[in-house]
Computed example of a mutant assay.
Amino acid sequence: MKVLLVEDDVSMQTALKRTLQNRGMEVELCGDGRAALERWKAAPPDVVMLDLTLPGMDGLLVLEQARDAGLATPVLILTARGTVGDRIIGLNTGADDYLPKPFDLDELEARLRALHRRRAPASADAGEPPLPGGLRWDRQSGAIHCRDEILELAPRESALLQALLARPGHAVPKERLFELVFPGEADVQYEAIEVVVYRLRKKLATTGVKLVTLRGLGYLLKAE
């Protein structure tokens, strides 16, 4: 896995590069936002680790311009800006995941590998991956079936389940789910997503599908 680490703190650059290389990753360093964008365009890596506070160009602007240029590389934001508002801004700008400093190195590795797996293109002949527990999702109507019966779900429960079904076998970050379930609802408390998770979990109890919480990674659907 080739990782572009965009971070201006030299001591953190050194520590993260050593750690990730010891775990089998190839790490390229860049400490300036504008230079990082040019390097990203010239040789897209597998994953970008992006700090937000950078000289030359702010990290969010780097991300915005990269997405505008069609660069689809998964991005993990690393930053001391840990508020919910900052996380939502980062995800809305095009980030795929968010890890506030300080962080655990094992969790960092897990998140990077998860992003790398998501990036791997599916075979054109393989079709869509099977959904857990035999669930069937009609993307045109939005209906989700279990054993040929439509699940009776509230709109937010349906939005949450669809977001999880779109990533079968992968954890979806809580921040991303909040953005999809409560789009543009600035007055909603961040913890409200947990209420929707609880309600959906109860409705899935008899389907043979479990909604699992993965600490630090998000939520995942799996067959019982």
Rank of each mutant, 00 (worst) to 15 (best):
P102E: 05
T53H: 11
D51K: 02
T19H: 09
R119G: 02
V3Q: 03
Y198D: 14
G82N: 10
P102K: 09
R147D: 14
D46L: 03
V197A: 13
A223C: 10
P102S: 09
A95I: 06
G85E: 15
Q162T: 00
D96T: 01
A15S: 13
L200P: 04
V62Y: 07
T79R: 08
L112I: 15
V196N: 00
Q65Y: 13
K101D: 08
P102V: 02
A223F: 10
R39H: 05
V212L: 15
L29N: 09
K222M: 15
V3I: 15
A120P: 02
L220S: 04
L165N: 06
L153G: 04
P44K: 00
R111F: 14
G216K: 07
T83D: 15
D32R: 08
G218R: 05
D148Q: 12
L204T: 09
R111P: 04
Y98W: 12
R87L: 05
F182D: 08
V3N: 00
V62D: 10
M57Q: 14
D125W: 12
P173C: 07
V48W: 01
P55N: 06
T207W: 04
L217M: 14
F182I: 03
R176A: 14
L50S: 01
P121S: 09
W137V: 05
E26V: 14
L50C: 03
T206R: 11
G94M: 12
R215Y: 13
G24N: 09
P129V: 04
R201H: 05
K210C: 10
L16A: 06
R201V: 02
A35D: 12
G184Q: 06
G33Y: 00
V6F: 02
G142P: 01
R23D: 15
T207L: 10
T19C: 09
D46S: 05
P173V: 07
A120N: 11
L214T: 12
A143D: 15
E152L: 14
A114Q: 12
R117E: 15
G218P: 04
V188W: 00
A95H: 04
L78P: 12
L211I: 07
